[in-house]
Write a protein that binds this DNA or RNA. Sequence first.
DNA 1: ACCTGAACACCGTTCAAGT
DNA 2: ACCTGAACACCGTTCAAGT
Lengths: 203, 203
Amino acid sequence: MVRPPKAAPRPMRADAQKNYENLLAVARTLVAQQGADASLRDLARKAGVGLGTLYRHFPTREALLETLLRAEWDELGAKARTFETASAPDDALVSWLRELVAGARIYRGVVESMMAALADKKSALHASCAAMRAAGARLLSRAQAEGTARTDIDGTDLFALVGALAWIGDHAALEPRAEHLFDVVVSSLFVRDAERVRRKQPR
Amino acid sequence: MVRPPKAAPRPMRADAQKNYENLLAVARTLVAQQGADASLRDLARKAGVGLGTLYRHFPTREALLETLLRAEWDELGAKARTFETASAPDDALVSWLRELVAGARIYRGVVESMMAALADKKSALHASCAAMRAAGARLLSRAQAEGTARTDIDGTDLFALVGALAWIGDHAALEPRAEHLFDVVVSSLFVRDAERVRRKQPR
DNA sequence: ACCTGAACACCGTTCAAGT
DNA sequence: ACCTGAACACCGTTCAAGT
């Protein structure tokens, strides 16, 4: 059902193709250094390309981010499916959240773009973000069904907490404690042992 | 020990005084609407004042924010002291955190400025932010001494979590769940009942 | 089909010139 | 002592003109 927008992406002219790839390569390092709000003008300059060329290939900043993040997110989607079948529901949820928070941190400020994309259905990032949220919701409800995750949170809450944790990781001063704070926050997603439904396999 | 920078703040010339107050009044509503990164040019324009006048009264954006937030923060400091003497340590911590998160949300994006201020000792906001963090640390260690708060977190962690929760509140899409997520995250600060040190007054 | 760069409307910040 | 606004160096975005 989800399909790349252009069913038959006719090959680009050779010079266009080269510009496109160069732009992406430069963008990858620039966004890694400066964050998701890096100067587009600077990007065009560093890629040795006119401003119009940048806008032709990536009509919005989100289109650019979308391309930068697609590989990352395809991988995260695959991991969600793996965890779903290979791990206990609660472990699967924690492992995937860890990956997602790490993924949201490769580019500083990217969670901000994700939030905006979720609110705007026409955004180039919308579909991928919604898919992420849905994958998280699935892992969550699996853990809830098992009785390990608290039932008063949903997929949106989960996404909010991921954003909050990514916010922490985006700040150099807090980064040393980011992993620990991940554990602290994630621990709150699960019900206390005492209230836990009995399960066949005690861990 | 903490004292306003100018021990004897000589009275301003009448016109300067008027500009200063007008600037503050306009800034209050503008920053409330647009967030902490509102356009300074726009502010000067709306206050009917030259750009240089704005910069004369508030040499940096942080100086402006500092003035806007000082009243708010003086109040929060007082509340910390009240809670400290009037409530059980864990209740005091939770109540104060709730106030702080609410306070950090009056202006969108203000936690970002707080983070920057804590990292930069010369910032106009530094002292007030550090004082906030210290007040939180005090309330935390009180709850830790009592045995209700987990001991593997410190004042910086607390501040990080406040920032994370404020981040959630800054996003309209998440705001409906902000209060609930506050409860979820804050619950993780306390040790599980089973591990809790016995206390004279069971609640 | 694709590229370029000038043009437009915005920023933040500084500072010479005015009163 | 205080104010003003032009000037400078940046943005993002659009679009006429070129190949």
